[in-house]
Computed example of a mutant assay.
Amino acid sequence: MWNLKVPAKVKIHIWRCLHNAIPCRSILVNRHVRNLSHCPFCTEGAEETHMLFKCVRSQLVWKALGIAADINFASHTDRAGSAAIEFIL
């Protein structure tokens, strides 16, 4: 991942996604900062990987890109999302 020819901020964001270091609602709840941990778009599931791979809105993006089936398979294989991010890369 670190050898990709993309801006450093993209590499850092990917690394933070893989290590659950993005301050999304569910992480903030664990730190007692907020009290809502559900997805802000569909209110189903925790926000972390759900929002990137399983939410209705993200599924529309993956369908538009033509990789929805692959993303669904990868996210079912690895619940943390690293398999899906690896596939995208």
Rank of each mutant, 00 (worst) to 15 (best):
L60R: 00
Q59R: 12
A74W: 00
P7C: 03
E47V: 05
K63E: 13
K9Y: 12
A68R: 12
P23E: 08
L52D: 10
P40C: 00
A83L: 08
A69Y: 02
D70L: 04
A74C: 08
I14E: 02
L52R: 09
K9V: 03
P7T: 13
A64S: 12
C17D: 03
H76V: 02
F73W: 09
S58E: 14
I71N: 06
E48A: 00
V61F: 04
K5N: 11
V61E: 09
R79V: 13
M51L: 15
A83E: 01
E48G: 04
S37Q: 15
I12G: 00
V6M: 09
G81N: 02
S82Q: 06
L65D: 11
F73M: 09
E44K: 00
K54Y: 04
L52Q: 03
I85R: 05
L18K: 14
A46T: 13
S37C: 09
C55L: 00
V56N: 15
I67R: 08
F53N: 14
N20E: 14
P7W: 08
A46V: 09
P40Y: 04
I12K: 13
Q59L: 05
K9Q: 11
I27T: 15
L18H: 08
R79C: 10
S75L: 00
K11T: 14
T43A: 06
C39A: 05
W15P: 06
L4R: 14
C24G: 08
L28P: 07
E86S: 08
W2N: 11
N3A: 04
D70T: 02
A21H: 07
H50P: 04
I85S: 05
R79L: 07
I22G: 01
R16F: 02
I22W: 04
F41P: 01
N3M: 03
G81C: 02
K54E: 14
S75T: 07
S82N: 07
I22M: 10
A68N: 13
N30H: 10
E47S: 11
K11E: 09
V33L: 08
T49Q: 10
I85P: 03
D78Y: 05
H76M: 04
C42H: 03
L18Q: 13
K11I: 15
R31K: 08
F53H: 14
I14R: 15
C39W: 03
C17R: 13
A69D: 15
L60K: 01
R34T: 13
K63D: 12
H19C: 04
L36I: 11
E48N: 05
A64N: 11
T43K: 13
T77R: 12
P23V: 06
H76L: 05
I22A: 04
V33F: 01
S75R: 01
A68L: 11
N72W: 00
I22C: 03
A8N: 14
S26I: 09
